[in-house]
C-alpha cells in the first residue's frame, strides 16, 4: 500500500509529536519526520499541515533572524497542541494494535 495515503490521516499527530521534542521551522520538521522513518512525507503536506495547526491554535510561531540565510519562521507547540496530541495517543495505540493483530493473523476469530 502507498504509505503517503496512510500518512495523510496522522500527519497532524506526527507534526505535533516532532514539535513536542523541540521547536522547528518548516523544512527542519520535514527532515526530522524523514529521519524517524516517514520517508514518504510530502514537503507541501508538512507545510500545509503547519499552517492549519497554526490557524487552529495548536501552534505558536516566531521568526528567528539569521546572519547566513533568510529569517526563519519557527513553530512551537502550545497547550492546545499538547492536549490534541494527548487525545490522539490512545486512539492511535488502539488503532495500531488492532491493525497489528489483523495483519499478523492473531485475532480471536482466527
Amino acid at each position: 500500500m502507498d504509505p503517503t495515503q496512510l500518512l495523510k490521516g496522522v500527519l497532524d499527530v506526527a507534526v505535533l509529536a516532532v514539535l513536542r521534542e523541540e521547536d522547528g521551522y518548516g523544512y527542519d520538521i520535514v527532515r526530522r519526520l524523514r529521519a524517524v522513518g516517514l520517508e514518504q512525507v510530502g514537503d507541501a503536506s508538512v507545510y500545509g499541515t503547519l499552517r492549519r495547526l497554526f490557524q487552529g491554535g495548536a501552534l505558536t510561531a516566531y521568526v528567528v533572524p539569521s546572519e547566513s540565510g533568510p529569517h526563519r519562521k519557527y513553530y512551537a507547540i502550545n497547550e492546545r497542541g499538547r492536549a490534541q496530541l494527548a487525545a490522539a495517543g490512545p486512539a492511535w495505540a488502539q488503532f495500531a494494535g488492532a491493525m497489528d493483530k489483523l495483519l499478523s493473523g492473531r485475532t480471536d476469530a482466527a
Binding site: S45, Y47, R51, R52, Q55
Partner: peptide, 8 residues
C-alpha cells in the same frame, strides 16, 4: 494542490 489540501 498538496499544500492547499493539507492547509484546509
Amino acid at each position: 494542490a498538496e499544500l492547499r489540501t493539507a492547509a484546509g
